[in-house]
Design a protein around this nucleic acid. Structure first.
Lengths: 153, 153
DNA sequence: TCATAATAGGACTAAAAGGATCCTATTACT
DNA sequence: AGTAATAGGATCCTTTTAGTCCTATTATGA
């Protein structure tokens, strides 16, 4: 009933990219430091995101990560599912007919309804919105720093 | 992002008890067969439910399981959390201040909102409601059997 | 053109959690 | 008192998760 660490990181990576200028190429090390992600582990996350087609990777010197599509066209659900696979709250929602009790299981309907609710919520959030959100501004110094770092290299 | 098998079983156990006469004592073997739960594994589930105070267990011959409270007073959330512990979608929602980025993390707010939504939904479903729900009646034969099995032994 | 340095990609390894099973303690019935 | 039936707890194995390391690839500079 909880997000994997990898999916958590993945979302932060995409948000970080979305916070930069549209087609910016950002080295993974910069993202790792900015988002406090273990550098070595980030490679794995990046791999999953690239395989799903959400980001583009550029190798070699001067390379880095780049959004494959406009941030407004990528939803929170897409990022999570790119890492974890399809979101299924319960086993019986994975393959129809997996549960032999399905026809008389009272709980099945509830799980399906809750899952629909969850998916709808995750579908409604785009990376562009998240990039604009300043989080929970408590310290004006950090809030200013994060908003004012265009990384216009 | 998915329910553990044990929690899934736990819900079915409580629903099965709630489907019987109010203070019925049901041997775990009967529940295992009715809900298709591996008999040996059921013991672990039962242990967790009893420890959380949701059910009462009666040892010895003629013993079995019994609801500790009226089914209408137990919610789906209570059963799930009895097994899995507090529901936290993400690590940063567990302990406030666990994430060093919290003040400038754009995603934090979304996770909190989605989690609130999820909890509210699980809180709204009681075991009594689930016991009354006939599931998804597709096969009239099984639907009739489940509805017409009062187990009035 | 070739060597070098920086970068992503994928394979691999430890750690934790999940899933299941067995054995033991307890209770009622004979 | 003996026996059978039942839950409780401890234990083991499997799967998933988290993290690290090494290799392939590419651009840059000589």
């Amino acid at each position: 009933m909880k997000l994997t660490r990898e999916a958590d990181y993945a979302v932060r990576v995409v948000v970080e990219l979305a916070s930069r200028p549209p087609a910016a190429i950002v080295p993974s090390r910069a993202i790792a430091e900015q988002q406090q992600i273990p550098g070595a582990f980030l490679a794995k996350v990046v791999c999953g995101l690239a395989r799903a087609g959400l980001i583009r990777t550029l190798r070699g010197s001067g390379g880095g990560l780049q959004l494959a599509r406009p941030a407004a066209e990528t939803t929170l659900r897409q990022v999570v599912e790119a890492i974890e696979g399809p979101i299924r709250l319960n086993r019986c929602l994975r393959e129809p007919g997996a549960c032999p009790l399905q026809s008389r299981c009272q709980v099945h309907g509830v799980w399906r309804r809750v899952q629909e609710l969850l998916l709808r919520e995750l579908d409604a959030v785009t990376m562009a919105e998240l990039a604009r959100t300043p989080g929970e501004p408590r310290d004006p110094r950090t809030a200013g720093a994060s908003a004012g770092a265009p990384a216009g290299s």
